[in-house]
Nucleic acid binder design. Sequence first.
DNA 1: ATCAGCATGTAAGGCGTTACATGATTCA
DNA 2: TGAATCATGTAACGCCTTACATGCTGAT
Lengths: 177, 177
Amino acid sequence: MARERKIDMVILGLLSHENLTGYDIKKRIDGAINFFWKGSFGNIYPALRDMEQTGLLTKKEESAGGREKITYRITDEGKKVLKNWLREEQASNELKYETLLKLFFGGADNKKISVHNIEIFEEQIKEDLKVLKSYCKALESAPEDKDHLYFYLTASFGVETYEAYLKWCTKAKRMLQ
Amino acid sequence: MARERKIDMVILGLLSHENLTGYDIKKRIDGAINFFWKGSFGNIYPALRDMEQTGLLTKKEESAGGREKITYRITDEGKKVLKNWLREEQASNELKYETLLKLFFGGADNKKISVHNIEIFEEQIKEDLKVLKSYCKALESAPEDKDHLYFYLTASFGVETYEAYLKWCTKAKRMLQ
DNA sequence: ATCAGCATGTAAGGCGTTACATGATTCA
DNA sequence: TGAATCATGTAACGCCTTACATGCTGAT
């Protein structure tokens, strides 16, 4: 069984741009990546340790004024592993939407409950859409960096699907009433 | 920590419509539910056992010609648990798309790799869209059942978001070339 | 002084997947 | 006769979340 831990690839990907600490990595994941992938400290630190031990990463311990800080750098081997992953044809794409599960079984209760659940979903999506749109806007106005296109495309995926969600919400509420 | 195992709710939801065996439940999940929720035998059977022990389900063992078969029925207590879940305001909706992760880090390799990864994704979505559309069509032509509306709305969510995915694929490929 | 943020990590527990193990029936 | 489908379950393993544990720094 080959290792399935995708957080390794997230870390490798981030480190292919810049050297970072575990804390920094967490912040990056909590940004634009967050809507299609998650990470936690309990996830990141062990992965960092493992990859340093297998030679995909090197670390540099700094103590800036008594406070310890470990910055990681990707190695050539790490870059190779990242590229190999990018070139693998299989990719697991999964959606786990409890809102849809509740709607699917909505017949077990009053229609109003389902309408309300859609409304809660709708509000959340509207909030998230604002954030995604701000990412897109920021990336559109700075197209000089070659990586910006990739970041823009993922954010744009979010914007377009979330807009489709909102259209569906309107339709679904109408059909339930 | 309250139990987070959502498979319980899937089972309760399915049993609120009809009595089923564990094997039947697996088949139902592998149908329309599959695109927003997954289940496995190693998941379902223990949940069934637990819920029977806590009184949310009752079982009836039949041996139709030497072959054992256990049919489960939902209890009033089980129905109450299902309704309480439907009325809970929080719902976890998460997307884990490795394709987007690969695209996000696409700058680490040739553009062609990213285009190819989008094409693989696109083909998969086209396949799944066909299936979802067939579910929708089947449900549209049989609107007499009150639960059909709920099934239709979830399938329709899939159709509309997958169509948005395909539009995005075209745009993304164009922008990369 | 105190609180938010920087910074690293561990431990427990929960959930899910996969593979394994077993055996009957139906249909070609 | 052999393959697919029906049918139930267990065990190992892996991954992730959450909570816990600790301590410094900078701003108010």
